[in-house]
Amino acid sequence: MNFMVDINIPAPAQTVAYQQPIMLVGSCFTEHIGNSLQEMKFEVMQNPNGILFDPQSVAASLVSYVQNKQYREEDLFLLNEVWQSWQHHSRFSGMNRTEVVQMINASQQAAHDFLKKAEWLVITLGSSFSYRTTETVPGEQRANAGPEGAVANCHRAPSQWFRKHMMTIEETKSVLDNALHQVRYFNPKIKTIFTISPVRHLRDGVIDNNRSKARLLEVVHHLVNKFDRLYYFPAYELVIDVLRDYRFYDIDMAHPNYPATQFVLEKFMTHFVDEPSQQLAAELRKLAVSRRHKPFHPHTEAHQKFLQSQLLKAQELQAQYPFLDLADELKFFSGKH
């Protein structure tokens, strides 16, 4: 008997390969995939603004990379003793205003340069809900809010400062369509993969979470049918409809756990990555697992032989694939870490 629903995952006309730079933008699920690709030594840049959930924030960030938008100190606001940007994750916040602006602008410049050469753009949308500032926000904290006061991160500001807006299908189509046009004009060779995050936004309520995801799905499939070189990877369906069990969620019942994210990654590698790259990635994954090995007795002859065997594998891979950066692995297995 078959205890799982089968799902058809059509491979894109072109598949991902090594030496093809990949930019990933969007929700926290983006970083699960991005971190795994990074560990397998793909050339990756992920979330230059930090984690983003809604289409308005994702689209605005992409346009800012194309335009290489540079921020000023006046674009920041002081809240909870640190300088913040409404368009960036809290990892960009800090107590020194000048340093925060420099950090943001360095990330903008790096994103602009990377997007120009990228061959793949992976966009993961998490929610249709966009938070917009209201008139209750003090004047000095209104800096740099987007259209209609849209913010990418609320930075734990008072809840009365915001109104929660579920973007309509037409709004979502408009902002993403505009962003894709600008990205493609900036980098004509780029190919795009859309995914919908399987993370369940339970704080919105189960009903509104499903409405939110449904709008994202409708818009993404509209765009996939409209543009060439734009593909859909069903991360959402793989968790919600194939795994379909709370044992594949973390303790919060909202985030897919490690087995679930690995299941999704395996499907991505099988259907969206070419076969030679899959084979190389498997070898690099073994090397990464070996590097995480924690010996009980690191000075034994057995462990030293283990290190030597892994060093030899790393040296062989480096010689066979000169484009790989295995400096950290070579240093680690040679005992110089």
Rank of each mutant, 00 (worst) to 15 (best):
K189I: 11
N257F: 12
T261P: 01
A179D: 06
L223R: 11
R200P: 07
Q279K: 14
D208H: 05
G205C: 02
P276V: 13
Y232K: 10
Y231H: 14
V264C: 02
S212F: 03
T195I: 10
G205T: 04
S197I: 12
S197Q: 09
R211W: 01
T270C: 08
E283I: 00
P234G: 05
D250S: 10
M269Q: 11
H221W: 13
I190M: 08
S197T: 10
N257H: 08
Y249W: 03
F263M: 05
L243D: 07
K267Q: 10
D252V: 05
H271V: 02
K226Q: 15
K213R: 08
R200Y: 12
T270W: 08
Q279L: 12
T192I: 15
A254V: 05
N257G: 09
P198V: 11
I190Q: 06
Y232A: 10
I190C: 07
E266I: 00
A235C: 07
H271E: 04
R211T: 00
N225P: 07
D274C: 05
Y249G: 04
R229D: 15
Y236F: 15
Q279I: 10
I193M: 00
A235H: 02
H222Y: 14
S174Y: 06
N257C: 11
V273S: 00
E275P: 03
R229N: 14
D250Y: 02
N225M: 13
R203M: 09
P188S: 10
F268H: 08
L217F: 12
I251L: 01
V273Y: 00
K213N: 06
R215K: 07
T270G: 06
V224W: 12
R211K: 11
V264E: 00
Y236H: 13
F233H: 11
F272Q: 09
H271K: 08
E218R: 04
N209H: 05
D204C: 06
K189V: 13
V206S: 14
L216Y: 01
H221N: 13
V224F: 11
A254R: 11
D245C: 06
M253A: 09
M253I: 03
P234M: 05
R247A: 06
L223F: 13
N225A: 13
V273A: 01
S277L: 08
L223A: 12
E237P: 01
G205P: 05
I240R: 04
N178D: 13
P276I: 12
E237I: 00
L223D: 10
L202E: 03
N209G: 03
A235S: 15
D250P: 00
I251G: 00
Y246C: 07
T270A: 15
P188Y: 03
Y185D: 15
F248D: 03
T192H: 10
G205E: 02
E275T: 13
R211I: 01
A260K: 07
D177V: 00
D241A: 09
V206F: 15
V199A: 09
R211V: 01
L223P: 06
I207E: 04
Y249H: 03
L238Q: 04
V219Y: 02
K213S: 06
A260N: 12
K189T: 14
V206W: 15
Y232G: 09
K226W: 14
R211N: 03
V183W: 10
V219N: 01
Y232I: 12
R203L: 11
L217A: 09
V264P: 02
L230I: 15
R215T: 03
G205F: 08
K189C: 09
S212V: 03
T192Y: 13
V219M: 03
R247E: 04
H201D: 02
